[in-house]
């Protein structure tokens, strides 16, 4: 099994954290994982991205040319990375900020993640709505492991942040599971 995920958006949308939570949850599940960030000037305002590889074997390159899943949170990211979706790959797009996209051989999931996060009451949890959607769509990483990562990462004494993230994850899963 190998799952290669590119996660892209604008700086501040939480794409690095989304990748880290995914990688850490996958690690807790016993998979081999790698997380590789864009570390150039793009992390200071432009398009930012990270690459996560999950596998049952030793991981070769952490750099992804052909992705199984591409997640884009804004339109520049969609333009930059839509060509990286491999055959029979999945593209998860944030329709709040990214335009339309169709390609043969690509499964497209498009939802207004930013709007959903605003409805929950915290635009900052957009990334976790997306993660919930990804978990439900791909079923590689269990939500239980993600919740454990939330518990480990959340600053102590900030219960409302934890609650908002849990809610976001759940809303994201509901987009796929109904």
């Amino acid at each position: 099994m190998i799952e290669r995920v590119i996660i892209a958006g604008s700086g501040g949308q939480g794409v690095m954290l989304l990748g880290k939570v995914l990688a850490e949850a996958a690690m807790r599940q016993g998979w081999q994982v790698s997380w590789f960030p864009a570390y150039g000037p793009e992390v200071r305002g432009g398009t930012s991205y990270c690459m996560v590889v999950i596998s049952d074997r030793q991981i070769g390159s952490p750099y992804i040319d052909n992705a199984d899943t591409v997640i884009v949170l804004n339109n520049p990211s969609l333009e930059k990375f839509k060509g990286k979706v491999g055959n029979k790959g999945m593209l998860i797009a944030n329709s709040s900020l990214a335009g339309n996209f169709t390609a043969s051989g690509v499964k497209l999931l498009s939802f207004p993640f930013t709007d959903i996060a605003m409805k929950i009451g915290n635009i900052k949890v957009t990334n976790m709505v997306v993660l919930g959607c990804y978990l439900a769509a791909k079923k590689i990483v269990d939500r239980g492991n993600v919740l454990k990562v939330f518990d480990a990462m959340a600053p102590s004494g900030k219960k409302e942040i934890l609650a908002a993230n849990r809610m976001a994850l759940q809303e994201g899963e509901r987009l796929v599971n109904g």
Partner: peptide
Amino acid sequence: DGVLGQMMEP
């Protein structure tokens, strides 16, 4: 190299 320095792994 830059990949090794930046990459996270278990």
